[in-house]
Amino acid sequence: MHITLIQALLIGLWTAFCYAGMLWGIYTNRALVLSFGVGVILNDIPTALACGAVAELAFMGFGVGAGGTVPPNPIGPGIIGTLMAITMSGVTPQSALALSIPFAVAIQFLQTFVYTLCAGLPEAASNALKAHKFGKFRLIANTTVILFATVGFLLGFLGAYSMDTLKTLVNMIPAWLLTGLNVAGGMLPAIGFAMIMTVMLKKQLVPFALLGYALAAYLQLPVIGIAIIGLVFALKFYFEQDEKQAAPAQATTTSQEESRDDWI
C-alpha cells in the first residue's frame, strides 16, 4: 500500500507527541501505543495491534533502569516496524520486530546525543535569570522537550515517507533470512521477560513464577485470570503483613501498661 503525504505528516506528528510524552512520563512512548496510532492513521488496526503487542512484550524490560539511562527506543518497532508490517506483504509482526531492532538502537544513540547536546542548558538558563529574562528561562527549561518533539516528528515523517525505499531494501532480503527473522522475532520477547525478571524475581517470589507458568501453560487461563489469582495471594500477604505489624505494637503497649501498673 502507498502512504500519502498527509498520512506521513500525521505519523510524524503522532511520533512527535509520543516521544515528547516520554519526558512527561505519560507512557505514550511504548510500542503498544505508538503502533496503535500508525494503525489508526493507515487504517490497519489489526496488524498494528499485533506488532504493538509483540514489541511491547519484547521491549518491556528495556525501559527499566536508573533514571537517565537510555534504553533502545520502542519507536523502532512501534513506528518503523509497524509501518513495515502494514505496507510490506512479506513482513509479519515478528519479522518486523527483528527488522526494526537496528532502528531502536540508532534512536537510542540519537537520544543520548540530544541529552548531551542539552548539557549547556543550565548555564544558559542561569545567564537568562541573571538578566531577569524569565520568558527566556522558561524557553530554555523546555528545550529538551522541544527537541524531542522535533526529532520524533522527523523520525515518524521520514520513516513513513521513505517506506518505498525501505520496501525495495526489504525485498532484497532472501526468503530463508526472512523466515529466520520471523523465528527470531517470536523468541525476542524472552529477553524482555528475562530482563524484567532479573529485577523483580526474588527467591521468595519463585513460587509465583511457577504458579504463573502452570496457570498459563497447563490451565491456559487468559491473562486477567492469572492476574486475579496472583492478586489473591498478594492481598492475603498484604493483610497478613498489616496484622503482623499491628500485633507486636499492641503487645508492647500492653506490656508497657502492665509494667507501669506494677511500678505504681
Binding site: G186, G212, V223, A227, F233
Partner: peptide
C-alpha cells in the same frame, strides 16, 4: 515496600504466565 512486595507477586505471576504463552518456539 509492603505495597510493592504485593504488587511484585502479581507481576511475577503474570509475567511468568505470559513468558510461557507469548514466547514462540
Amino acid at each position: 515496600s509492603q505495597i510493592s512486595d504485593a504488587a511484585s507477586m502479581v507481576g511475577v505471576t503474570v509475567i511468568a504466565g505470559l513468558a510461557a504463552t507469548f514466547v514462540k518456539m
